[in-house]
Design a protein around this nucleic acid. Structure first.
Lengths: 185, 185
DNA sequence: CTAGACTGAGACAGTGATGTATCAATCTAG
DNA sequence: CTAGATTGATACATCACTGTCTCAGTCTAG
């Protein structure tokens, strides 16, 4: 059967999300493909992991674009900022699966170009959070980097909740946004 | 120099928090001990990781006990429940370092006895959250397991914040409790 | 139908980590 | 001071994974 590079990448990510140290043999099996074929698409393990990293970045960037983050920051308008913030969080929830493994894969730390890209995307989000603080949409007494890490931590919780079946997929966006903004009390 | 088993375990955990796939050689060096000595204390890598898992459970259990979780649940009194909840979250923040690695070490999934212990501790926390929901201290529109996962996710964020130097240690408890209860908005 | 592309299976050497063992040096309790 | 315990250094066999290669079988476009 023909399995595209994209399909293999998706299957690899799915499997690595649950078993981050899986061997190429395991990954190949999970993708329904032989180890030889896996190596034809991704010469080395590092290349595969790196590709997954870039793939996750694309999803992330797309979520930021669709939420209109950059424009909202530029406008400075409270209602625009709030809309972008909500759209971003919901967008993150929808692509949570794409981040589970890549955000904690420490072999990616060597890929300088990728790290720069991550920093850029993170930087933009920090600017959004800071603008929201100035506009009174987010609490100003929290360090902006803590807010960013909070969202990241809640994404981890979201992925875990899906994995364990604690939460239905369709409820996830609402739960994430609600909890992020208003907490649990 | 004499380095106790406990000191080695602590150093191993500290290092594995940052480098979860570190070799025995690396771990030994981080603990200021030779690989031979490390193997004398922990015959195999699995044994070491398992010991760290049990160690983390002890910290967790102690935090629950000190917070008076069981008694609060039994009492059903809102103020007692709230006090226990706050004490638990703060306690978790203080031992966040002990959990960073062990909570994501998937080799622990094989240790059935340890997993049972984890389930028990988690079960007690779920009961506390449910009691808090009934007492109006926590939102009743959130699945109790989502609340539990939220706290877990925020702990991940806390460890990450400390690791990156985004947050000072002394601010952590407050940030964690505030964010857990009231969110970022 | 056929040629070219793609695949799975298997063999292979190289590499790094693991766990065990030995031995000389060092520390420490008594 | 001394005997026993503990340590670091080193060597060793073993193992799993990686990356490369070959070859025969299968699929597919034309």
């Amino acid at each position: 059967m023909v399995v595209s590079r994209e399909q293999i990448a998706a299957a690899a990510l799915r499997h690595l999300n649950q078993s981050p140290t899986a061997s190429m043999e395991e990954i190949a099996r999970a993708a329904g493909v032989s180890r030889a074929t896996l190596h034809r698409h991704f010469a080395t393990r590092d290349e595969l992991v790196s590709a997954l990293g870039w793939r996750a970045m694309e999803y992330w960037e797309r979520a930021q674009k669709q939420a209109g983050v950059a424009e909202a920051i530029e406008s400075g308008d409270p209602r625009t900022l709030e809309a972008a913030l909500h759209a971003l969080v919901i967008g993150q929830a929808e692509i949570a699966d794409e981040h589970g493994f890549t955000l904690t894969a420490n072999s990616l730390l060597d890929d300088a170009a990728l790290m720069r890209r991550i920093d850029e995307l993170e930087e933009l989000e920090l600017k959004l959070f800071a603008a929201c603080q100035r506009a009174g949409i987010l609490r100003a007494d929290l360090p902006v980097r803590w807010i960013s890490n909070t969202l990241y931590g809640l994404l981890v919780a979201a992925v875990e909740s899906l994995r364990r079946g604690d939460v239905a997929r369709r409820d996830l966006s609402r739960l994430l946004l609600e909890t992020f903004l208003r907490g649990t009390a």
